[in-house]
Write a protein that binds this DNA or RNA. Structure first.
Length: 130
DNA sequence: GTTCTGACA
DNA sequence: TGTCAGAA
């Protein structure tokens, strides 16, 4: 199928499909005209890309992870040996990013708290670890 | 008519 | 990511 049908089937814009290819996440064949040709399997791949993107992985990481996952109906299932370990590292990376954001939030709370009355933002409640 | 690449917001 | 231009 060509890009238009692919976009309709996946719900992902043509622009994004081209971007995924540029990032090495998808490698559709080409017609003599230069038009991209996607396979049915590519539809599942795009679904996996969306899932991994939602999980906070970068396109570079997804490119490495993609060939190591199996279609598990609704989601994905890890296949390669070192995959789970790498995903754990990604999780730590995200945890550190959250810490940094919390610190930034704290800084702003301090600044806001020093301003005019009634403009302070309530402190957030702690979130449970996963 | 549909898609491609490159560029800009 | 969306959108537009110019070419095929």
């Amino acid at each position: 199928m060509r890009i238009k049908e692919m976009a309709d089937r996946t719900g992902v814009s043509e622009r994004l499909l081209r971007y995924y290819e540029e990032q090495g996440l998808l490698t559709p064949a080409r017609l003599p005209s230069g038009y991209r040709v996607y396979s049915d399997a590519d539809v599942d791949t795009v679904r996996h890309i969306r899932t991994l993107l939602a999980a906070g992985l970068t396109t570079a990481t997804i490119a490495r992870v993609l060939p190591c996952v199996r279609d598990d109906g609704p989601g994905l299932a890890p296949v390669c040996p070192g995959l789970v370990a790498e995903l754990r590292q990604e999780r730590e990376r995200i945890a550190r990013a959250i810490e940094d954001l919390r610190a930034s939030q704290g800084m702003l709370d301090t600044i806001i708290g020093a301003g005019p009355a009634g403009t302070a933002t309530p402190t957030r409640q702690p979130v449970p670890e996963g």
